[in-house]
């Protein structure tokens, strides 16, 4: 993923070189499309883990939580879901700020989003600490940690992207016309959010 910086116009090449500007044969932006394709392959990675989930829970069929007296904290995780969903809202707010040239809104929006994301992660880590089983206890534990851990890693990546965007927002980048540096991480963040809803409903609720 490679958004153009402020110093650069559309072209991905450095201005002082002399390639002819490429023809734009599609209305879709390169960065946007790139992120979309990346998300497709991320969905497939989750797909692989969900396949594992399917095999362990349905095919091997040796039971699911509550198991050996241990249950998954549906409620806390539910609250955590709300936290993550609301971070999608604040992300949208930041983007709107960027679109309208409202720098403050963009900065505050990005900061809250990052804060909510961080809250989510810490609740998750806390859950791991108190949940009472380990990934190597049995296959159910394995796939529980596998799916939530994979998702957690994606939250961490999303957070990193957000930190970059926030940094840049505070250093004076992004204009109403040129704000892909907010938009593209935003797409990723929404993806992470939607993915969590899928993980939450299949692992905790179903």
């Amino acid at each position: 993923m490679e958004s153009a910086s402020v110093a650069h116009g559309h072209a991905d090449h450095d201005e002082h070189h002399g390639p002819p500007p490429a023809n734009r044969s599609s209305r879709v932006e390169a960065q946007f499309l790139g992120m979309l394709l990346f998300i497709i392959s991320e969905v497939m990675l989750f797909g692989a883990f969900f396949t594992a989930y399917f095999f362990i829970r349905v095919v091997a069929d040796s039971g699911w939580f509550p198991m050996d007296g241990k249950d998954l904290p549906k409620l806390i995780a539910g609250v955590n879901t709300a936290v993550l969903v609301s971070s999608s809202v604040t992300m949208h707010w930041a983007l709107e700020g960027a679109r309208r040239g409202n720098r403050r809104a963009m900065q505050v929006g990005l900061l809250t989003t990052a804060a909510l994301g961080l809250t989510f992660l810490s609740v998750q880590v806390n859950e791991y600490v108190h949940i009472g089983f380990a990934p190597h206890d049995n296959a159910q534990g394995t796939i529980f940690y596998g799916l939530t851990g994979l998702h957690g890693a994606h939250v961490a990546v999303g957070l990193t992207l957000l930190v970059f965007a926030t940094l840049r927002a505070f250093r004076g980048h992004f204009t109403p016309k040129e704000h892909r540096g907010v938009e593209v991480p935003g797409i990723y963040w929404h993806f992470v959010d939607v993915m969590w809803i899928v993980v939450y409903s299949s692992v905790y609720l179903l």
Binding site: I40, E42, M44, A48, H136, A139, G141, T142, G146
Partner: peptide
Amino acid sequence: VIATPFIAGSQFFVLLDRTIGTKFFD
């Protein structure tokens, strides 16, 4: 783009089984 993540997944499973003793294939 669509298929390669699956081999990444399969090798993550093996790696996890080997290193931290998860039970994907047990």
